[in-house]
């Protein structure tokens, strides 16, 4: 065996390598870099599906419902034109494949395979089959990170569609969220549909979010409701990104 150096000097190159590694990792972290996400997106490209909207919507029932929505939207547009309201702008949505989930159990995130090059900006709203999914937090060239509404740090201003009562939806790291209402006598019952609120600053108005599963009316200072998300957050394969 070669003569080993005294004390820590024999580890000097290892220690300096580790210090260098910590410095580089710290730079990556503080720079909010999408480097690892980009590499993951590049390497997983052969396994990503290509998006065909026709295939996505081939289900006859979906097509029927879409036709009904189109009809209702046309009626609304006509009524709005009668009231001389300005027509709502319809942003062009970007379809994106879900290529990965969160790299840690404490965060509820998606990695999607579209980024800045395809026109995605931080803060863009993400929808999936069924309803709201979350919003874009970090953007790389060809990949983006989406914070799901089920994340514990996520807060969404919501409204009960039937009674127009407003509240705040917080994620619980599961398939359900918790809505805290602002008023004492909130008119909510199980089965109500919850949509994004018109006063939300992060999300456009009226995107379906979930269905009320149970209400705790005895909660102080205001009642709380458990909401099941409409979008199957754990099974998503494609999402639609609305430009912010």
């Amino acid at each position: 065996m070669a003569q080993v150096g005294k004390g820590w000097w024999r580890y000097s190159w290892q220690i300096s390598l580790i210090c260098l590694g910590i410095y580089a990792a710290f730079l990556l972290r503080q720079g909010h870099s999408m480097l690892l996400g980009e590499i993951y997106a590049f390497l997983s490209r052969p396994f990503q599906g290509t998006i065909s909207v026709q295939e996505y919507l081939r289900d006859a029932q979906v097509q029927g419902l879409e036709a009904r929505i189109a009809e209702l939207e046309n009626q609304i547009a006509q009524l709005q034109s009668l009231l001389q309201l300005p027509p709502p702008s319809k942003p062009q949505a970007i379809w994106a494949p879900v290529i990965g989930r969160s790299a840690d159990a404490w965060w509820q995130q998606l990695l999607i395979g579209r980024g800045r090059e395809e026109g995605i900006q931080p803060g863009a709203v993400v929808e999936g089959q069924g309803g709201l999914v979350g919003r874009v937090t970090k953007v790389g060239e060809h990949s983006s990170q989406v914070l799901l509404i089920s994340d514990m740090s996520s807060q969404v201003g919501v409204m009960v569609s039937r009674s127009r009562v407003m509240g705040i939806l917080r994620g619980q790291n599961q398939n359900t969220g918790l809505v805290e209402f602002f008023v004492r006598d909130a008119d909510v019952k199980a089965g109500d549909i919850v949509v994004t609120s018109p006063v939300s600053s992060l999300f456009p108005q009226g995107i379906p979010v979930g269905r009320v599963r149970s209400v705790d009316v005895n909660k102080q200072p205001a009642p709380e409701a458990i909401v099941e998300f409409l979008a199957p957050l754990g099974l998503l394969e494609y999402v639609r990104v609305l430009p912010s």
Partner: peptide, 14 residues
Amino acid sequence: VCLGLLQDSFVLPP
């Protein structure tokens, strides 16, 4: 610590 920071850069929102 180094690996933790790398995982942070992957996960944490800005």
